[in-house]
Each structure stands twice: as structure tokens, then as C-alpha cells.
Write a protein that binds this DNA or RNA. Structure first.
Length: 752
RNA sequence: GGGCGGUUAGCUCAGUUGGUUAGAGCGCGUCGUUCACACCGACGAGGUCACUGGUUCGAGUCCAGUACCGCCCACCA
């Protein structure tokens, strides 16, 4: 692992800085910057959060100055949201095409209160429809005005210090906070009749993303990185970074974020990389007493030009400057290390979409630049970047420290377990979408981990100290129906997992594994093995262990700790080549030749029959301890029902027997059910005929309706012609089953 | 002003090449001390997939539009 201020990283940072400096991409310049008066540092555009705020728009009259410097009774009214900055006004701008002000351009105005004369200039940036169409120009305190000022050569007056207090330029308001100055100035304007009127107004105000203090735009000398400038013909940092995504060398998942990335990259502006804080990499630039400037990787002892004494620039770099180097710097760059050779570029990287610009964009730019000797493929920091969503609080609000609604992962791990926390978040939403934090989900995940633990305990307990050989498909015939079924299901799961993992559908993957383990493995397979194991049949052991082994392997990325712990026990019971740890063990993939369509279909039937038995039990309110006699009048699936009969007897708590479809039932009262061509008759102590009829009618309506819908669909020529064969065939089969069920129920009703 | 996402069971959310009766967990109802698990099990109730129109043999899924919620970007004096 690596720490930002490690010497190796410092070297990478300095090497990058010096290289870019020599190429002329990094420069020092006086520009309008975002200044946080509380942190007392410059910020990049990305570190400013804009918030809509209710404010006021103040309309102030600026008298026109006549010959000899005397104010005329005529005036230009300007609209401003920040009257306190008027002390630093150096002009008033109007749109040159605005008839109202055409003749005013070039005239002088008297700045109220200050008494200074300022010119009226024409500038296209002014929108005639806004306010009065005339805007006061304050180049020292507004980015737009800075631009206008530059175009018209207006002086830059800075009337605030770095803590946002009014300075001597503010005359009578010197020493006041901006807020106090605003109140005082408005009072004075009003007293002297310069305040025309005030309107309610909403606009967005920039705040420091760290401390929420209102940002002051100020002209300041800072270090900048020009990402658009070509460092060699045809290549710029942002141009290359956009191209890499555009031509698919770097894939963004989910894809919709591509547009966001490109939009930002294509409209990128110079990055302010210097900060006036104490923590960070100090800028590797030195100044000598003779005004030489030296950028160097190693600290120079004296000025290489004149030998004079040196002073290092006091600013530090934006931390994202070093973070952006992570993919190659962490591997040892600028040294040609073994790790760098082997691991760069990495395959996948993952982050919240909220740091796409901060981190991802910078990693791409720096990676492509620093590693450019490797060519367009080899220089990329990663091939795929996954953007996950944000965790919001239970009310859907963004988690922030100031709101105090954050969730501490360590506390969650303590409360529910690290695996449960991880699993809940991984399965909580689709990749790229936000999710609400919910304790219910944490509990559910914890319960699943517990369930897994207990199921493994069962398997391991039954296997005992022996070593078991994994089942082999060649021996398929020697396995029971449910064995073949669970192995088939496992293999099907493996294909699904392979598919969804390749598509980066992490949540879907985890959910399908959970579904398999909970439902197929625990609810059905384990339950069905109990009676066999009790009878001394050891064949299920190998299957149990095999399914558990593979399940743990697949679940490992989603629940690393529990699975590793359990697998340590599993690996010792399996006779074969097993890795020392699950984390380095191979990941299952399909191809084991266990798929078995007939077992799938047969078991599905068995499961449905058992469900029906239990349903009748419940509906007829049989006592929990009762073991009613059940006749399964079977046709096509008779063999399957017979093979699993003992499991049915055990898990559905009945005294069941399979008979031929046309077998006579001994005289008794029965509750009936039907699955495809199998009739289920549950002997009952008494039958409420009306209730039984109602139940059967409901079932019949369901089955008949279903069959009817499918029949109609199948009768459609267009459908038969255009739908894929498998769909038609599958529907045909389902329709026949539904019909068999319906006709069986109909017969039963008539018999009643 | 641009761009993007969401709207599916009471709640939180899945549902990726359109295809047989739309799923999970939680919650709810009934039952249960069967030797892995009550952090459990069995059975069940619960959805016109926001709305309108279109394409198609077939639409939660594709297209167009509407409504509401949310996010991102942009120098709205």
C-alpha cells in the first residue's frame, strides 16, 4: 500500500510537475480564482458547490458626469446582487446594440459614495434584457467583470482582504466584514437617494465544498495546468483523455457516464493546482535572489544560473494532482519497476461517479502523458472504469458530515459484519444508481450470511472427518434425481454468474448466487438429503460438498470473510487439488457437463407436487403433527415421484404413495390438487364439500384461463411463423400441462 | 439554458440482446419446538410495471410525448 506523501510518490509528483512545466503546460499566472476566506486557499472549479439562494437585486443610480466634472441630473441605473463590491467598480458596461444606452457609451459616471469617475463601456457580454441592461463592472471581484475589464483596460481594484474583510480601498467601510459593508453601503445609498429600488431575486452562490463558506472570486497569482495545450503535435492532456474514451480504449460502465465524461473533458478549463494550505506536496519550484525560477525533481542547493540562494514556492499542490498519478506512481513510476511492467495498465477500476472529474479524468490524463512511451494502448491507466452510485441516508438525502447523517462502515461492520455490509451494498442497487441506506437490508444480508454458515455447518457435520471425491459427470447415472438436479442447477448458475460478471452486473450476480443457495440448495436439496443420509446413503455427501465448494467460490467476491472461513474447512474434506486460500482459488465456470434438462423438468414437477401437498395441508388446516395419507396418481412423471418419495414423505410430513393414474382410491374424504398430469389426493378427516368445491373451482379457473391464453397465442399464425421455435415449443408444452391440470380438476369437480 | 437518471407489491429494490402465469428481501396473515439455522421453516395475501399514444404476432423491456421526483454541467450582473 501507498501513502500520498511517501517519498516515492513525491518523486512521481515532482517528475510529473517538472515535465509539464518544461512543456509549458504548467504555468504561474494572475487569474480570477475561487478563494475560500476561511480555508484561506485557492480552490479549483470542481471544489466549489453552487447553491440556489434567495437574495435581492439592488438597483443603484450612477449619475452621469457633465462637462467640468459636474454630475448631471441624468443617470444610469445598474442592478447588482453585491452592492458592497461597488467600492471597487471601475466602469459600467452596456450592450453596444442597446438603443437605450447607445449615446452613453464613452461618457463618464460618478460612482456614488466613492465620488470616483468611471467610464461607460460597450460590451457584448451584457444582456440587454437583464435588469436595466447596464451592469457595474468590478474586475477585482467578479469573473465576468474581470473579463470585461481586460477587454476595456479598466483598472482592477481589490477592496477585500483574504479573510473577506473590506480593506483601505473601501474607504469609509474599511475593516468591515462584507456583510456589514453591504448593510452600511445600502443605508448610505438610500440616504443619498442613489438607491432606486430593490427586487427579490434567486441566484446561485458558490460555497467551499469543504467548509461551506461563501467563495470570493479574487484575482490571484496561482499555478495552473493547461490541459488543452499541445505538448507535442496532435497531443494534449485533455484531447488524448477524451480520445481514449471516444474510441473505446477505455470503457466506462455504465455507459451513460461516457457522455458526462466527454462533455467535461471537451469543455475543460485550466486547472488551478496550487493551494495555500500546509498539507500536501510542496510545489517543486525555487526562486533565487536574482529572480531566476527553477523547477526541479531534486532539491537544488543553489541557483544553477547564478549560484544565488534559493527559496521554495510555499504553495502545495491540489491533492488530486498526486491522486491522479496513482495507477502508475503506485507501481513505482518513474522507475521502470517490475510491478509497473507487469501490472500497468490495470484492467478495472471502480469509484463513485461523484469523483469522475476529480479522479478518473486526472488519472486518464496523467497516465496517458507519463506513460506515453508505451503507445496508445499501453499508456492507458485502466481498460474499464466502473462508476457506482452513492449511499444516501434512509430519507434519500445525501450523506454529509455537516448534516451528521453519515454511516461509519466500521460501525456497520461491527453491528452486522463486514460481509453483510458489503453484500447489502453490492446488491442494494444497480451499478451507477444511488441507494438508500437501510438497516433492513443490513439485517437481511446478515441473516443470509448466517444461513450460509449454518448450511455449511450441516454439510461439514455430515461429511465428518473423511475426504470426499468430487462427483464426476461420467458417473451421472449413479446419482439420484435430486443430485443430478442440483448439479445441473449449479452449472446453470455458473453460466449465469459468468455472463453477469462479464457484463459487470455485480448486484445481479450476487443475487443469483444467493437465490441458488437459499432456495435450491438449502430449501430443497439439503432437506431432501436428510432422509437419505439418515438411511445411510452416503452418495449425497460428495454432491453437498461440491455444491457448497462452488457456491463459496462464487460468493467469495461478495462475502469474502465468511466464505474464506468456511472454505478452509471445506477444502480439507475434498480429495483433490485445492488452493491454500479461497482468495487465490479458481473461480467456477460452466462446462462441467452437468446440465440435465430431464432432471430439471422432473424435479420441477416434484417440487410443485410437494408445494401442492403442503398447500392442501395448510388450507385444510390439518394439525401440524398430522401425517395424512397422500395418493399421487401419476402418469408421465411417475418415476420421478417414486424416486423422491421418501423425501416427499419426510419434507411434506405425509404418508405418501405413488399410484397409477387410473388407480382406484380407497374410499375416504380427500382434498385434491393437481400438477400437470399428476393428481394429488390428501386424505382428510372430514371435508367441507362446499369449501372443497370452491377451492377446486378457483384452481380450475386459474388453470383453464392459463391454458386458454396460451392456446390463443399458439393459434396465432403470425406468432407461429415469427416467434423462435424454442418459445413456441415451450409454450406448447406449458399449454398441454395446463390443459392436463384443468381437465383433471374438471373431472374431480364432477365427481364431487 | 443544456444533459442524465428515476417512477415496478405497504417499504427498499432487481428485472441488458421484447417471448410462456413480473421477482427478491423486509413487512403483513396463518401455522410450526421435523436432530444446519427462530439471525429459522412451511403456506398464503399483495402489483392495470406513473400516464398517453405508437411499433410488433407479442412491450415492464423499443420509439414519441406528458406529469412528478432527483442529479450533473453552464461566468443567470
Amino acid at each position: 500500500s501507498v501513502f500520498t506523501l511517501d517519498p516515492e510518490i513525491a518523486k512521481a509528483v515532482r517528475t510529473t510537475f517538472v515535465s509539464l512545466y518544461k512543456k509549458g503546460l504548467i504555468y504561474r499566472g494572475l487569474r480570477m480564482i475561487n478563494w475560500c476566506p476561511r480555508c484561506e486557499t485557492a480552490l479549483s472549479d470542481l471544489e466549489v458547490d453552487y447553491v440556489e439562494e434567495a437574495a435581492r437585486l439592488y438597483f443603484v443610480r450612477y449619475p452621469i458626469v457633465g462637462e467640468g466634472g459636474m454630475p448631471l441630473p441624468d443617470y444610469v441605473t445598474v442592478a447588482t446582487t453585491r452592492p458592497e463590491t461597488m467600492v471597487a467598480d471601475s466602469g459600467v458596461a452596456v450592450n453596444p446594440s442597446d438603443d437605450r444606452y447607445e449615446e452613453k457609451i464613452g461618457r463618464m459616471l460618478m460612482l456614488p459614495i466613492m465620488g470616483r469617475e468611471i467610464p461607460v463601456v460597450g460590451d457584448d457580454a451584457v444582456k440587454p434584457e437583464f435588469g436595466t441592461g447596464a451592469v457595474k463592472v468590478t474586475p477585482g471581484h467578479d469573473p465576468n467583470d474581470w473579463e470585461i475589464g481586460q477587454r476595456h483596460d479598466l483598472p482592477v481594484i481589490i477592496a477585500m482582504d483574504l479573510q473577506a474583510r473590506m480593506n483601505d480601498e473601501a474607504g469609509p467601510y474599511a475593516g468591515m466584514s462584507a456583510e456589514d459593508a453591504r448593510t452600511a453601503i445600502l443605508g448610505d445609498l438610500d440616504d443619498e437617494g442613489f438607491l432606486d429600488h430593490v427586487e427579490e431575486y434567486t441566484h446561485s452562490v458558490g460555497h467551499c465544498s469543504r467548509c461551506s463558506t461563501v467563495i470570493q472570486p479574487l484575482p490571484s497569482e496561482q499555478w495552473w495546468l493547461d490541459t488543452r495545450k499541445e505538448y507535442e503535435p496532435g497531443h494534449s492532456l485533455s484531447g488524448d483523455a477524451a480520445a481514449a474514451v471516444r474510441d473505446g480504449r477505455i470503457g466506462i460502465v455504465p455507459q451513460r457516464f461516457e457522455k458526462v465524461y466527454l462533455n467535461w473533458m471537451d469543455n475543460i478549463r485550466d486547472w488551478c493546482i496550487s493551494r495555500q494550505i500546509w498539507w500536501g506536496h510542496q510545489i517543486p519550484v525555487w526562486y533565487c535572489e536574482n529572480k531566476h525560477t527553477i523547477a526541479a525533481v531534486e532539491d537544488p542547493a543553489a541557483c544553477p544560473e547564478c549560484g544565488g540562494a534559493l527559496r521554495q514556492d510555499e504553495d502545495v499542490l491540489d491533492t488530486w494532482f498526486s491522486s491522479g498519478l496513482a495507477p502508475h506512481a503506485d507501481l513505482g513510476w518513474p522507475e521502470e519497476t517490475e510491478s509497473l511492467r507487469y501490472w500497468y495498465p490495470t484492467a478495472d477500476i471502480q469509484m463513485g461517479y461523484d469523483i469522475m472529474f476529480f479522479w478518473c479524468a486526472r488519472m486518464v490524463m496523467f497516465g496517458l502523458y507519463n506513460m506515453r512511451e508505451r503507445g496508445s494502448e499501453g499508456s492507458m491507466p485502466f481498460r474499464k472504469v466502473l462508476f457506482h452510485g452513492l449511499i444516501r441516508d434512509a430519507n434519500g438525502e445525501k450523506m454529509t458530515k455537516s448534516k451528521g447523517n453519515v454511516v461509519d462502515p466500521l460501525i456497520m461492520a461491527e453491528k452486522y459484519g463486514a460481509d453483510a455490509f458489503r453484500f447489502a451494498i453490492l446488491t442494494g442497487a444497480t451499478l451507477g444508481s444511488d441507494q438508500r441506506f437501510s438497516d433492513e437490508r443490513m439485517i437481511a444480508a446478515r441473516n443470509f450470511a448466517n444461513k450460509l454458515w449454518n448450511s455449511a455447518r450441516f454439510v461439514l457435520g455430515k461429511v465428518g472427518p473423511r475426504e470426499v471425491k468430487s462427483p464426476h459427470p461420467a458417473d451421472r447415472e449413479s446419482f439420484a434425481l435430486e443430485d443430478r438436479w442440483i448439479l445441473s442447477r449449479l452449472e446453470q448458475l455458473e453460466s449465469e454468474v459468468d455472463f453477469s460478471m462479464r457484463a459487470y452486473q455485480l448486484g445481479e450476480t450476487a443475487r443469483s448466487i444467493e437465490e441458488f443457495l437459499r432456495s435450491d440448495f438449502c430449501d430443497w436439496y439439503i432437506e431432501m438429503t436428510k432422509v437419505r443420509l439418515a438411511a445411510g446413503d452416503e452418495r449425497p455427501l460428495a454432491v453437498l460438498l461440491h455444491a457448497l465448494d462452488h457456491g463459496l467460490r462464487m460468493l467469495h467476491p461478495f462475502m469474502p470473510f465468511v466464505t474464506e472461513e468456511l472454505w478452509q474447512a471445506v477444502r480439507q474434506r475434498i480429495d483433490g487439488d485445492m488452493a491454500a486460500q479461497l482468495i487465490v482459488a479458481w473461480f467456477p465456470k460452466s462446462g462441467g457437463n452437468w446440465k440435465d434438462a430431464s432432471a430439471d423438468a422432473a424435479m420441477e414437477h416434484v417440487i410443485e407436487v410437494n408445494r401442492t401437498i403442503r398447500n392442501v395441508r395448510t388450507e385444510k388446516k390439518l394439525e401440524a403433527g398430522a401425517r395424512p395419507t397422500v395418493f399421487l396418481r401419476a402418469a408421465g412423471n411417475r418415476w420421478a415421484l417414486e424416486e423422491t418419495l421418501s423425501a416427499t414423505i419426510f419434507t411434506s410430513r405425509v404418508d405418501a404413495r405413488v399410484v397409477a393414474a387410473d388407480a382406484e382410491l380407497p374410499p375416504a374424504e380427500y382434498g385434491f390438487g393437481r400438477v400437470a398430469d399428476t393428481e394429488i389426493a390428501v386424505a382428510l378427516p372430514e371435508v367441507d364439500l362446499a369449501q372443497e368445491r370452491a377451492r377446486l373451482e378457483k384452481e380450475l379457473a386459474e388453470a383453464a384461463g392459463h391454458a386458454e391464453r396460451l392456446k390463443k397465442q399458439l393459434a396465432n399464425e403470425q406468432f407461429r411463423a415469427k416467434a423462435p421455435e424454442t418459445v413456441v415449443a415451450g409454450m406448447q408444452a406449458t399449454m398441454l400441462e395446463a390443459e392436463a391440470r384443468a381437465s383433471g380438476l374438471r373431472e374431480r369437480l364432477e365427481a364431487l
